[in-house]
């Protein structure tokens, strides 16, 4: 049995130098001097001067964006704050309210549930990367149909799809036209990624009767604004939180046990039949 860790002394020395210290690339609070975020004095340059969503995007990406873009992101948050407890993350809020969990626990846990492979925030990593790579392919001479064919060939799912161009429950997405109006009102044009996203949507509607969803739309829009997949993911970490809170309140105000009550036999037991427990040999 080995008792030596065969350690690299340089790493031990490096770690020792950092004991009891915090090194930050972001900022911090220095009592009596101020609070700083990415080089800005929060209390002198940000609070009251910039909107909460400008601060949120700054903290999430390090970029202080102009007001119109922050307003666009804020509007997008509104698109994902529906008070409908049938949506999986929102139902965590409703179930929490039904059993009187704290509203903070409900909201935080519901927001976490949107870290899903099929809905919510996590798919942004894939959909922003897709549209960015698709634009490179277009610039290299491929058209939307060829880009879709290539994506389908690489897709391992039984029904091929492209992240951002398919949605559970419904086909189509009523939020696209709303966000298009918001974008126009805020002075945004159609960038290269968005133009390609529309071309891809047109192709997909013809091929498999699937259109763009809000995820695909926001991915193309934010790619046009120069954000990476990871920055986009970071920017929307609490995207669904408000809808979860709304669903919490509805059940919190109702008697316990009354949200989607289940009889014992409402669970369809499909396991082994009853059997005797064997004694431990």
């Amino acid at each position: 049995m080995t008792h030596s860790t065969y350690s690299n002394p340089e790493i031990i020395d490096y770690l020792d130098q950092r004991r009891g210290k915090i090194f930050s690339n972001t900022g911090g609070w220095f009592p009596g001097k101020g609070v700083f975020s990415h080089g800005y004095s929060m209390l002198e340059e940000l609070v009251g001067e910039k909107t909460y969503f400008q601060v949120l995007i700054l903290n999430a990406t390090g970029k202080l964006v102009d007001r119109p873009l922050a307003d666009w992101v804020e509007a997008l948050y509104g698109c994902l704050s529906w008070p409908d407890p049938r949506i999986w993350c929102n139902q965590i809020g409703a179930l929490s309210g039904a059993v009187r969990t704290s509203v903070m626990s409900a909201t935080a846990m519901g927001a976490l549930a949107a870290d899903s492979r099929i809905y919510g925030v996590l798919p942004l990593l894939e959909s922003v990367a897709f549209i960015q790579q698709a634009l490179i392919k277009k610039q290299q001479g491929m058209n939307a149909g060829q880009i879709v064919d290539e994506a389908f060939a690489e897709c391992k799912a039984s029904k091929p799809y492209i992240m951002g161009y398919r949605r559970p429950i419904a086909k189509g997405d009523e939020r696209l036209e709303v966000m298009e109006k918001v974008g126009k009102k805020l002075g945004f044009g159609i960038g290269e990624h968005m133009l390609l996203a529309y071309e891809i949507e047109k192709t997909l509607l013809e091929k498999i009767d699937e259109g763009m969803n809000i995820n695909g739309y926001m991915s193309a829009f934010l790619a046009d604004q120069g954000f990476s997949p990871q920055e986009t993911y970071q920017m929307f970490s609490m995207l669904v939180a408000s809808g979860v809170t709304a669903c919490y309140l509805d059940t919190y105000r109702r008697p316990p046990d009354t949200f989607l009550p289940l009889r014992c036999d409402d669970i369809d037991y499909q396991g082994p039949p009853r059997r005797a427990v064997p004694d431990v040999k």
Partner: peptide
């Protein structure tokens, strides 16, 4: 864009479990 319409997906009528029977 296309008109929004339900997929009418065949969701289960009951949640099934092999683990627990009450």
């Amino acid at each position: 864009h296309e008109q929004v319409r339900s997929r009418n997906e065949p969701f289960a009528q009951k949640t099934a479990s092999q683990i627990w029977h009450e």
